[in-house]
Amino acid sequence: MIDIYRLEKKARQIRGQLVETSHKCHVPHLGGCLSCVDILVALYWQILKIDPEEPNKQGSDKFILSKGHAAHALFTTLAYKGFFDRQLLDNYGGLDNPLGEHPLPNCVSGVEIATGSLGHGLSFALGMALAAKLKQQSQKFFVLMGDGEINEGSVWEAALFAPMHQLDNVIAIIDYNKWQATGRSAEVMSLESITEKWQAFGWEAMAVDGHNMEQLLLTLKAAKKVKGKPIAIIADTVKGKGISFMQDDNNWHYRIPTNDEVMTAKKELGLIK
């Protein structure tokens, strides 16, 4: 049996670490990092077939963070999962530290692709998925995109291509946190109905509560079994999730927490008394 409680605890620890590092090292984009922590924990602790010691081993699953501005969440997850020394987080973004606001190419073990310009990750995954089919390998390619990111036309070019070629080794996850940089996603672009849109494009589209670990795991496992179609998982999330004063407040797209705010956040997460 999977210990859901253990995963939830891991997610809380990672959230605490994110807030702390953001304060200490001035890393922005907390809101969009906090919204995808549960997804990352589910993926890295239960779903991805990937060895932290040897992430590029033939046949390993791949994860691509297409919303590159959430690099902080990815790096922290990788550090907690043992891909590299957790001490690197202490000096995040500092001189000679490979961790920055966006992932650079091959910056740390477990990250190959540089993202930060939105709307590239899905096409990268399609290319790797085609290569895997050509080489008759069976691994899966997971991509995490923002709901703002899917404004980009390039995303929909990939969306049209993948079903045509039955790329059932591609699993696109959308961090549907209802905000983008300067507004509500549904007020900037006509985003609704997002699940139906992917369905209509020929994807196996699944909606899930992106903060419910049990549901996330069930959905991701089901996604891995789908045959003949690419899969889109619309994860219903809250920007700033887990910390009362950050939740659904888009100021935390850029804001850096104060020391007091870090303390309050850690208390709320049950990490300190």
């Binding site: 590159g68 920055g100 966006h102």
Partner: peptide, 8 residues
């Protein structure tokens, strides 16, 4: 935006 990497 030097610290944001070459994408920026």
């Amino acid at each position: 935006y030097a610290e944001l990497g070459a994408t920026h």
